[in-house]
């Protein structure tokens, strides 16, 4: 009897939990669907009918405009993917090494280092000295490297990751040491495989940051072969705004392609920029699961 009651209670609470998540997810989906819907709506219908969750008049012109309106968007995808992949990998490597070291109790200056790292979260010298450093002293203007290097270390990520390493059972590391494993070896062979959940999480965040970064391009990139996707899309959006407010321009465009897709193109650009990263998420998700099972086997 008791067994059955518990089971029924479990079923009930499971139902309640799922229901809650479904409601919350619906709330999260409304804005996303609205963006998608606007991107697929005829511009004229947006002006007369307003925004709706389901397009009143379906149209792909927003997407057409994004793809035809600017320089090679494919090259920009390529650059962004290289920067995101290389950048995220290096970011994880540098961050995990540093945060592992300052998570270990036998490292005496760990707190001093942590403080030095933390301090940079609060204080910065502003954009001007940073710009001078990058262009005048490091000569990184107009290089692929600058796109990678600006986000290479994030103090917040270092401190978050440090806490995850702190939670690892000390006994694993001690026993590896007793087996004669060097510190680097322990880190790469034992600690990292156990830390896939946090690596996947930080990896997700940093790849989003690399993917979304358009300002670095705007400031430091002048060679049109190094433009990143987000920069192109950003430029496209402010260009639409500029063209729309220029009477002569918008008339000439209307003559050739019909009404300049303002809202719809803007939202299409948004969909095109976040689409790939949302699709990438399940891949990282798989790492989660893999890390979990790996961890279980080891433990």
């Amino acid at each position: 009897m008791g067994q059955l009651k518990m089971k029924r209670e479990g079923l009930f609470s499971k139902l309640a939990i799922n229901l809650m998540f479904i409601v919350y997810c619906a709330m999260c989906l409304i804005p996303v669907l609205l963006v998608l819907s606007i991107s697929l709506t005829n511009e004229k219908s947006l002006l007369t009918d307003g925004y709706h969750l389901i397009p009143k008049e379906f149209s792909l012109i927003g997407y057409q405009y994004v793809f035809s309106g600017t320089t090679s968007i494919l090259n920009a995808y390529k650059i962004t993917m290289i920067v995101t992949a290389v950048g995220s990998f290096l970011h994880l490597l540098v961050t995990s090494l540093m945060s592992y070291a300052i998570s270990r109790n036998e490292v005496r200056y760990r707190n001093q280092v942590s403080f030095l790292v933390f301090f940079t979260i609060l204080f910065n010298g502003g954009l001007a000295p940073y710009y001078i450093l990058i262009t005048k002293y490091l000569h990184l203007k107009d290089t692929l490297l600058v796109l990678i290097i600006v986000l290479l270390v994030s103090p917040v990520h270092v401190l978050i990751m440090r806490n995850f390493f702190k939670a690892l059972p000390d006994s694993i590391i001690e026993s590896a040491r007793i087996d004669g494993s060097g510190e680097f070896n322990t880190f790469f062979r034992i600690v990292l495989p156990l830390s896939t959940p946090v690596l996947a999480t930080i990896g997700l965040f940093i790849s989003i940051a690399y993917w979304n970064d358009w300002f670095t391009s705007a400031l430091f990139i002048e060679n049109n072969k190094l433009y990143t996707l987000q920069y192109l899309l950003q430029a496209l959006m402010s260009n639409i705004q500029y063209l729309l407010s220029n009477e002569q321009a918008s008339r000439a465009i209307e003559k050739s392609i019909g009404m300049l897709p303002g809202e719809s193109a803007r939202m299409a650009a948004c969909v095109l920029s976040i689409g790939p990263i949302i699709l990438m998420y399940p891949v990282l998700q798989r790492y989660f699961v893999k890390g979990l099972t790996l961890g279980a086997v080891k433990a």
Partner: peptide
């Protein structure tokens, strides 16, 4: 001819002037 997006152009020029570029 170097083109910079409208949303970043003024800031970029002010930075270039600041750094004496």
């Amino acid at each position: 001819l170097v083109v910079t997006d409208w949303s970043a152009y003024p800031q970029k020029m002010n930075l270039m002037i600041s750094s004496g570029e």
